[in-house]
Computed example of a mutant assay.
Amino acid sequence: MADLSFESFSEEDIPDMTEIMTRSFNCDSMMHLGKNGGPTGYDNGEFLRTWGLDPHSTQYKIVRNNQTIGGVILWINDKTNINTLGLIFLDPNLQDGGLGLEVWNKIESMYPNTVKWCTETPIYSRRNHHFYINKCGFHLIKIKDPKDYENGSYIFEKEMNK
């Protein structure tokens, strides 16, 4: 894709990013649950302020053709090289065309010393399961609260080949 870049975000970026994040999470939740929803604070900026501006996280706004189209929050551990993908979201109008995989591949290339990636996603989000397993090469390692369709989650890992 043309001009895809990752730029660190700040407080000034949160309103625009929250709008994109809200649409992205609502689209996924509506598809699978028939209602809007997401993690606490996803729709008012609280989530991005808490986790994206956390001094221990590494955060990026995803920019294409000079327009913010999504965001990523990572936790990078330089001691163990076991890193965590905390969040990735894209404008829902741009999903299902390979952009998510392009973003993920760029993340992997930015952190070549990673030995393992970890992430978590809701049980209900079958589209995310497909993305992480079939597109990105993650493996399901644990199910948290397997009987709770709305609040349970799948834990994924991806061992990196060196």
Rank of each mutant, 00 (worst) to 15 (best):
W75R: 12
T58L: 10
K79T: 14
Y132F: 15
F47N: 01
Y60W: 14
M110Q: 13
N36V: 09
N44E: 05
P55L: 08
D54L: 01
Q59Y: 01
V72H: 02
L101I: 08
L85F: 10
G37S: 11
G37Q: 06
N44P: 04
T121Q: 11
Y124P: 02
T58R: 12
Q95W: 02
G97T: 08
V103Y: 04
E108Y: 10
G52E: 06
G98W: 09
S109D: 15
Y132K: 05
R127S: 07
I141A: 08
G52W: 03
W104K: 12
P55F: 02
Y124L: 09
G98D: 02
K61A: 04
V63E: 03
L74Y: 00
T68Y: 09
W75T: 11
E120R: 01
S125H: 13
T80F: 11
F47K: 11
S57T: 12
N134G: 02
L94C: 11
F47G: 02
L140T: 14
P39E: 11
N36R: 15
E46I: 10
R49A: 14
T58V: 14
G86D: 09
V72S: 01
G97V: 07
I62Q: 00
T84C: 11
N83M: 04
R126L: 15
G86L: 05
T80S: 15
W117V: 01
K135R: 07
N134H: 15
I62Y: 07
L140P: 01
N134E: 15
N81F: 09
Y42Q: 04
Y42T: 09
P39D: 10
I88W: 00
Q67I: 14
G70D: 03
P39S: 11
I69S: 06
T84F: 13
I73V: 15
F131C: 07
P122Q: 07
D96N: 13
C136T: 06
N128T: 08
F131G: 08
N128R: 03
G97A: 06
L140E: 13
N36G: 11
N134L: 09
N93F: 05
Q95L: 12
V63R: 12
M110F: 03
G38H: 05
T80V: 10
L94A: 10
R127E: 00
P92A: 05
E102R: 02
I107N: 00
E102V: 02
T119E: 00
P122W: 06
T119V: 02
Y111R: 03
S109F: 05
M110E: 06
Q59E: 13
G41Y: 07
N65F: 07
N66L: 14
I62H: 03
H56Y: 15
T121P: 12
V115C: 08
T80Y: 08
G34C: 08
F138R: 00
N81M: 05
N83R: 12
I88P: 06
G100P: 10
Y111G: 01
P92S: 05
V115I: 13
I82H: 04
M110T: 03
N93Y: 04
S57R: 01
V63K: 15
T119P: 04
I82K: 13
N65K: 14
K135F: 06
